[in-house]
Computed example of a mutant assay.
Amino acid sequence: MASGRPPPLHRSTPESIPNHGRNFTIIPPDQQVQSETPGNLHPYTRPLTISDLESCIALENAAFSDPNERASREKFIYRLTKCGELCLGIFCTVDPASGFKAETLATGKPIETSRKNGAVSVLLGHVVAAKTNDALATDVSMDYPKDWESKSPQPSAVGHHEAGRTIVLHSVAVLPGFQGRGIGQTLAKAYVQQMAGAGIADRLALIAHDHKVSWYEKLGFVNKGKSEAQFGGGGWYNLVKYFTFLISDEC
């Protein structure tokens, strides 16, 4: 699923980034732009955790106008718990009194530098994903096992499979007010780079509506034709981004 387009932005300083003990990526200077909201954006990316649940839900509800195309709370809980390392968010630090407008502002977490202005980390866009043994995104890979929290869950093809070599992107979303300014592209490129660099999969796969296909093709995804997935009513196209790895003769 995909929503939103992407901005170039301003470089963050270490003091402006909350320390959640995860890997942060500061957006480089060559992707800088001015924000139309008060002040400039200082974006950075980091893996998502279950602590980001409410922000992810608020972003999903804002980005997808059709409720049938949104991931449910239960799916977010499952994915952020089981494979949060495959999920990436793009954030900025905001003074709540600045007049900054975002649907995720109320769910932002206070930064850990004890600032007097009560600055919070606000989610602007996210990529939520899981791994599968399938080569394409399917209804099975986009579902989740209902007994996953039990002590003895039953073996199932549904949901996340750690040994899978395909990463399925379930949600690629940017807040409506920040679409069209490069944030989605910045987030997607950061995600592709991180997953390719990790060497944990052979490909990325997702489904998208026809008006988003060209956007993904510019990021190196290949259109594999109409998808059989009926999530959200169907009408999707399969898109795949293949990774290539260099193998050294000295291994």
Rank of each mutant, 00 (worst) to 15 (best):
A2W: 05
S3N: 10
S3H: 03
R5E: 10
P7A: 15
P14S: 08
I17E: 02
F24W: 14
P29K: 14
E36A: 13
N40Q: 13
R46P: 03
P47A: 12
P47V: 09
I57F: 10
D66A: 15
D66R: 15
E69Q: 12
R73W: 06
E85F: 13
C87D: 03
C87V: 08
G89M: 09
C92D: 07
P96Q: 06
S98T: 04
F100R: 07
E103K: 08
T104Q: 02
P110S: 10
S114W: 05
G118L: 09
V122S: 01
L123E: 07
L124M: 15
H126L: 15
V128D: 00
A130W: 00
T132Y: 01
A135L: 09
A137P: 07
A137R: 14
V140R: 13
M142W: 00
K146D: 11
D147W: 02
S150N: 07
K151I: 08
Q154H: 15
A157D: 11
H161R: 14
G164P: 00
T166P: 04
V174N: 10
Q179D: 02
Q179A: 10
G182R: 01
K189H: 05
V192A: 07
V192H: 05
A196N: 14
A198K: 06
G199R: 05
A208H: 00
D210H: 09
K212S: 08
Y216C: 03
E217I: 01
K224E: 13
S227N: 05
E228Y: 08
F231T: 07
F231N: 01
G232S: 09
K241L: 11
F243E: 03
T244C: 11
F245T: 02
L246C: 08
I247N: 06
E250T: 13
